[in-house]
Amino acid sequence: MKRFRKNIVLTTFVLMQAFPVFSQLNDKAVNVRFTVPEIAVVDIEPALNNVEFAISASDQPGAEPVVEKLSEESLWINYSSAIRPNSNKRKIVAQISEGEIPAGIAFFIEASAATPFGSANQGNSLGKVQMTKDPRPIISGIGSCYTGDGVNMGHELKYSIEITDFSKIESAGDQVFTVMYTISDN
């Protein structure tokens, strides 16, 4: 009788072990994989926009010339960035790439804070920065993010001109210069 009971217990054990195998027959794995490359693209909106300033004599005799911004339209800088985890954050630098800034005049760019439209990890404005032919950062701390594409998205760019040395200003007609923006690793 004891042996019989032992066999019953053994049989039950074997069947209990077998039962889960019985219900789950077979499985197969499908590998799902994709790669996001490093991305760094920057653009100015609206495209091909010119900002114009005029420097004219003051109405008041002996007073400093007046700097006037003729363009009404605002400029916006948009960017998308994907960096690897633990990589350095990126920055946007600006520089005068073509033309010359007339003597006696300083040209500045100030990026506003990013609009809330885009994602987290957008960069921070570095305030009002004087432009030269050497690249100077205007926005830093850019992580993996996007600003949105178009005007009123990203950072507004405010251009300004200041007269630094009146004695060097000459009546030289139109002066054209180009600003180039580059997004780069810090």
Binding site: D27, T35, A82
Partner: peptide
């Protein structure tokens, strides 16, 4: 739910299909 915000890198998962009675 994919976004540039997740950063650059390789993303991988194994989808398991299991047949049962």
């Amino acid at each position: 739910g994919i976004s540039i915000v997740h950063g650059a890198g390789d993303f991988e998962t194994n989808v398991m299909l299991t047949i049962y009675d």
